[in-house]
């Protein structure tokens, strides 16, 4: 999932962390990682699998939208 890193370069607001799930079982459990890639944005929006750029952006915007 390279979109996250490219988004981090595009905006000072965005931080992207790629996590090797098997090396961090506790973290993976905490975020209920069942399948990969799994994306979690602001601990609020999550999805599994590769998605097109537009959908990824949609998830980012959803994560910062007022509740």
């Amino acid at each position: 999932m390279r979109l996250a890193q490219h988004m981090a370069v595009a905006s000072e607001r965005v931080r992207a962390t790629a996590i090797e799930a098997t090396e961090f079982p506790e973290l993976s459990r905490a975020y209920q990682v069942m399948g990969v890639p799994k994306v979690v944005i602001n601990d609020r929006v999550q999805f599994e699998g590769a998605v097109p750029e537009q959908d990824f952006l949609g998830a980012v915007l959803q994560a910062v939208a007022p509740a």
Binding site: M7, R15, V36, K38, I41, N42, L57, A63
Partner: peptide, 21 residues
Amino acid sequence: ETKASLQALAEDVDIKVFSTP
């Protein structure tokens, strides 16, 4: 379009991507 949306963000965004080798 994506770059413009990201540059307009008013809040910090933390993206975590879990994967396997």
